[in-house]
């Protein structure tokens, strides 16, 4: 079994980049159209059901994208396996934690908002 795959990560990196780009464009378009951006408007956007789901998707895609990029840097520069595996595990932990934290925060907002 191979520990690190080639194509899967490459596809993941490109798909997540596309998702991040689309959601950034969508956010920009949302803010440009309609009333001037304010805290109330941000809050309303983030606590609406579609807004919360899109924010979670955005951070999940961002962390997935970052995983492939940081993994590539580690594979290039950190050669000893004894150092490499714990480092990769730490990075994966941090990225998963960020995604979970955002998901939980959004869920809380959504529950409170509802």
């Amino acid at each position: 079994m191979r520990l690190f795959h080639g194509q899967r990560a490459w596809v993941l990196q490109r798909l997540t980049a596309l998702v991040v780009l689309l959601l950034l464009a969508l956010t920009a378009a949302t803010l440009l159209i309609g009333p001037a951006p304010s805290y109330e408007r941000w809050h309303a956007l983030a606590t609406s059901a579609p807004g919360a789901v899109l924010i979670v998707i955005f951070f999940a895609a961002l962390c997935g994208h970052a995983w492939v990029g940081v993994r590539d840097i580690v594979l290039d520069y950190i050669q000893p396996t004894a150092l490499r595996l714990p480092l990769l595990a730490l990075i994966a932990f941090i990225l998963i934690a960020i995604t979970l934290r955002v998901t939980l925060t959004m869920a809380t907002h959504f529950t409170v908002g509802a």
Partner: peptide
């Protein structure tokens, strides 16, 4: 053979 994180996908 080439579908490998090193053999092909080290290319940036």
């Amino acid at each position: 053979y080439l579908d490998d994180v090193y053999r092909l996908y080290r290319c940036r």
